[in-house]
Write a protein that binds this DNA or RNA. Structure first.
Lengths: 191, 191
DNA sequence: GTCTATAAGTAGATAGAC
DNA sequence: GTCTATCTACTTATAGAC
């Protein structure tokens, strides 16, 4: 039976590598070296690289659902949306892409079985954002200047785009790309 | 002396492959096969893959400058911005990423010499967008809800993000991701 | 300019010992 | 569970003939 510790370690390292370099730019050798085992031992835990990718997305998706559940207690939609944006900010500060954003950019080169899961994650996030905008509007928190669906796509694209583009430049003193996206987004939602 | 035709053909094919698959997911072999020559002949035109990448970005940048120059004749900032968005729409319809967006997503794996050029292209586009927003505001075309710099970052991130995310899903009947980003963006600019 | 031949290195993956 | 040994295929790149 696979040792859960080694398996989790492999997933942790692999996730970091995908978020930093992309799915095609890391190898089982990189993975093995960082965890302190040999390449073929990785295949014991994940038969193929595609299987590893599937486990990676599954875990990432479960973490998302946990985090969204933890936000249910918050009273305002504004506070829930802000918390989601904070998750992206922490990724930005590590100079990483979103796992599924990174996989999205490699979509045409991924094992077929992986692709629907990437879309599933992204759709779920966008859908959740749209729900929050709806809820906040019904509650009188927002006076959105566009439809909830359009605003959700704008925020989602803006956050993912900002993560990619921000990594190209050296860190600079002013507000980050993500902060600028966020600031403009709130104007659109609250006038 | 390199035959300009073969060289251009190689650049055309390579650009398509980068926009479709990313810099690390195509090989000189792919390139050679599509152009109808052998792998080592590609090295006659581009010594290394890094050199090919540099030529690719240079040409893409020159095309951008040509297109922006062609927009100078348009009377309104609104019309100039719309034309830029149309360029992204044509990329979206081909289900491709922006060349430099794709390279941005691979940034940590690129040959060092390439990286500044990727940033140069993205910065130039963002800067141009900010200039148009400024000009349109001065001319009374827009009443922007946020600073020109923030709005430029939002549009740039939104366009690039929409190209990446849109490719994950099958084409659907409703408005595309890019159209939704665009619609929300105009609301922010014009109220 | 393009070719054949070849190099040195890496990829994902498997067989079978311990 | 991890190892050594090995496989096939592929990568970027070079040498040198035509």
């Amino acid at each position: 039976m696979p040792n859960p510790d080694t398996r989790e370690q492999l997933l942790d390292v692999a996730q970091g590598l995908v978020q930093e370099r992309g799915f095609n730019a890391f190898s089982f050798k990189d993975l093995a070296r960082e965890v302190g085992i040999r390449t073929p031992s990785v295949h014991y835990h994940f038969e193929t690289k595609g299987d590893l990718g599937e486990a990676l997305i599954r875990r990432y998706r479960e973490q998302l659902e946990d985090e969204l559940r933890a936000l249910e207690g918050r009273r305002t939609a504004r506070s829930r949306l802000r918390a989601l944006i904070e998750m992206y900010r922490s990724t930005e500060q590590k100079r990483l892409a979103c796992l599924c954003g990174s996989l999205a950019s490699d979509i045409d080169t991924l094992p077929e079985a992986l692709r629907p899961h990437v879309g599933g994650y992204l759709d779920r996030t966008e859908e959740w954002i749209a729900e929050q905008i709806q809820a906040g509007t019904s509650a009188g928190e927002f006076e959105p200047a566009a439809s909830a669906a359009d605003l959700a796509v704008l925020l989602m694209s803006g956050l993912q785009g900002a993560l990619f583009l921000g990594r190209v430049r050296a860190p600079s003193p002013g507000p980050s790309m993500l902060s600028r996206v966020e600031r403009a987004f709130w104007k659109l939602l609250e006038g």
